[in-house]
Simulated assay, not measured.
Amino acid sequence: MVKKFEYRGMPLTELEGLSLENLFKLFNSRQRRSLTRGITDGKRKLIEEIKAAKAGKSKNAIKTHVRDLIVLPYMVGVTVNVFSGKEFRPVTIIPEMIGHYLGEYVITNKRVTHGAPGVGASRSSLYVPLK
Rank of each mutant, 00 (worst) to 15 (best):
V2I: 10
V2H: 01
K3H: 01
K4G: 03
Y7I: 04
R8Y: 08
R8A: 09
P11F: 00
E14Y: 02
E14F: 01
E14D: 11
L15W: 07
G17F: 05
G17Q: 15
L18I: 11
S19L: 11
L20F: 15
L20K: 07
L20A: 09
E21S: 11
L23I: 05
L23F: 15
F24W: 13
F24P: 00
F24R: 15
K25S: 14
K25P: 01
F27C: 09
F27L: 15
R30Y: 06
R30Q: 13
Q31E: 12
R33I: 08
R33W: 04
R33G: 11
S34M: 10
S34P: 00
L35E: 00
T36D: 00
T36M: 08
R37K: 12
R37W: 09
I39F: 15
I39M: 15
T40N: 14
T40C: 05
T40Q: 11
D41K: 14
D41Y: 11
D41Q: 12
L46A: 11
L46Q: 10
E48Q: 12
E49L: 15
K51D: 04
A52D: 05
A52V: 02
A53F: 05
K54I: 10
K57I: 09
K59F: 11
N60E: 09
A61F: 02
A61H: 04
I62V: 03
I62T: 02
K63Q: 03
K63L: 04
T64R: 02
H65K: 08
H65V: 04
V66M: 01
R67W: 00
D68L: 15
D68C: 08
L69H: 00
I70K: 01
I70H: 03
P73D: 07
V76Q: 00
G77Q: 05
V78W: 05
T79F: 08
T79G: 05
N81F: 07
V82E: 02
V82C: 08
F83E: 05
F83H: 15
S84T: 07
G85Y: 06
K86G: 02
K86V: 13
K86I: 11
E87L: 05
F88I: 03
R89Y: 07
P90G: 03
T92V: 09
I93E: 02
I94A: 12
I98H: 03
I98E: 00
I98W: 02
G99C: 07
G99Y: 06
H100M: 14
H100L: 13
Y101G: 05
Y101S: 14
L102G: 02
G103P: 07
G103K: 13
Y105E: 06
V106D: 06
I107G: 14
T108S: 14
T108A: 03
T108V: 13
T108K: 12
R111H: 11
R111Y: 09
R111S: 12
R111E: 15
A116Q: 12
P117R: 04
G118H: 07
G118Y: 07
A121I: 01
A121E: 13
A121N: 10
A121H: 12
S122R: 11
S122L: 00
R123I: 12
R123M: 07
S124H: 04
S124L: 09
S124Q: 08
S125F: 10
L126G: 01
L126Q: 11
Y127L: 13
Y127M: 10
V128D: 04
K131I: 14
K131M: 11
